[in-house]
Design a protein around this nucleic acid. Sequence first.
DNA 1: AACGCAATGGGTATTTACACCCATTTTTAA
DNA 2: TTAAAAATGGGTGTAAATACCCATTGCGTT
Lengths: 224, 224
Amino acid sequence: MEKQQETIQVGIAEDHPVYRRGLKNLLASEKHLNVLFDVSNGSELMEQLRYFQPQILLIDVRIPFIDGINATKIIKQNYPNICVIINSSYCDEQTLHDAAASGARAFLSKKSEFTVIIDTIENVYDLGYSFNDQFTPDLITTCCEENKKITVGEVSARSLSLREIDVLKLICDGLSSSQIADVLYISNRTVENHRRSIFEKTKAKNMADLTVYAIKTGYYSIQG
Amino acid sequence: MEKQQETIQVGIAEDHPVYRRGLKNLLASEKHLNVLFDVSNGSELMEQLRYFQPQILLIDVRIPFIDGINATKIIKQNYPNICVIINSSYCDEQTLHDAAASGARAFLSKKSEFTVIIDTIENVYDLGYSFNDQFTPDLITTCCEENKKITVGEVSARSLSLREIDVLKLICDGLSSSQIADVLYISNRTVENHRRSIFEKTKAKNMADLTVYAIKTGYYSIQG
DNA sequence: AACGCAATGGGTATTTACACCCATTTTTAA
DNA sequence: TTAAAAATGGGTGTAAATACCCATTGCGTT
C-alpha cells in the first residue's frame, strides 16, 4: 500500500442497543475509522447531521421515526456528499430494491463478518460504491438511472435435483438404499444411482461426510 | 444489596458477528459476569459444552447446524443445570411457544436494552426463570405439561471411551475402518470392534445416524 | 429436430459395514 | 484384591455400499 490511510468519519443509526454497541466497538477498533456519532432512530440522526457530517453513514432499515430508506433519500437531497450504507437483517428483493432506489452506496447484511463490514466501508470511501452478490451494479442501474456497468461473473454450482434431495434426506434419516426404494416406490437401483450422483455432486466420500454436507447446506436439520 | 455478588458464568451462541461482539462486550463490562465462551453455531456450542458448562447460556433461535430451540432441548437433556435464555429478533407467538416448550428459562428480544439483558441474566441465575409480558409463567405451564412427565435423567447413554471418541471423530471425518486403522496404528478389527461398541452405546443405526449423534453431543463439530 | 438432463432401471464385481461369536492384556474402580 | 471395563486382536459370515459399465423414457431448451 503506497497510499496513506486517511481517517474515515463514520456515523451509525441503529436501534438495537447490543448490535449498535458491537458495531461501534468494531469500528472503533479500526485506527483509520472514527465514529462521529451513533444514534438509535431517524429523528436523532437528522439532528446529529446538522452538526456532524460523516463521510460514511451506516443506517439500519428499521429505525424509528424516520426509517433507513427515507432517511437515505433525505440525506441524498441535503447532504449529497455523505455515502449511506444500508444495514439490514432482511436481504429480500424488496429491501434491496428500496435501498438501491433510495441512493444507498452499499448494502450490508447484519450477518456480515467484521472484514466484510470494514471492506465495504473502505470501498465506499474509495470508490463511492461497494457491491456484492445481492447489491449489484445492475440493481443500481435498474433502480436508479445511473450508468456504471460492471459484469458480474455467474457463480453456478451444480445443485442437487429435487429427487436427489429426497434421497439425501432419507439417507440422513438413516435408511438404507432398499428402504429408501420402498418409501419412494422406486427400484433399489434407481436409489443407488441417485446416491451415486449425489456423491459426485457433493464430493462426499461416504454417508458420514454426506450427513455433514446435508446439515451444512440445510437439506437436513437436527431435531432435539 | 445485602447479598454478595457471585460471578455468573455465561455462554453465548449467536451467529451475527457484530451482535455477538456487542453482547460479549456488554457482559464483559459487568464485573459479576464472566463470558466463558462465545460460538457462532449450534455445532460449536455442543463442542464447547463438553469442556465448559456455564450457568447461563444465551442462545439465538436462528443459529446454523443446530438451531436454538433444538439446542435447548438437547442441553436440557444432557446438561440439566444449565439455564438457557433464548434470544431472538422475532417475538412472534410460535417462537415464544417453541422457546417455552424447549425448556428455556427466559426470552430476550434482540431490541432489548442493556439493563433488561443484565436483569434477565440475574433473575434466571437467582430464581431459575425470568418472565416478562410475553414470556409468562402461564406460557411455561401450557407448553411444558407433557415434558413434566418425563424425568430428565432417563435418557442417560453410557459415555464413550476416549478411544471410541477418537474413532467416532474419524468416522465423521469420512474415513473407513481400514483408513482409521492406519491413522491410529491399530488393526482393522479393533476399529470395527470400537465401532460396534460405539453403535451399541449411542444406539445409532448407521453412520448417518451416528454423525447426527456426534454433532448433537459435540463430539464432532462442523466447520465453515 | 436435436440436444442435455433428470429420472427411471439393470449387470457385474469389489469393498465395506455390520452381526454374531471369541481371546488377551492392561487399567481402573469397588 | 478382585471384578469390571477398556483396548487390543481375531474368525466367519451376510448385507449393504460403492464402482465401473449400460439403456430407456420424458421433459424442457435451443
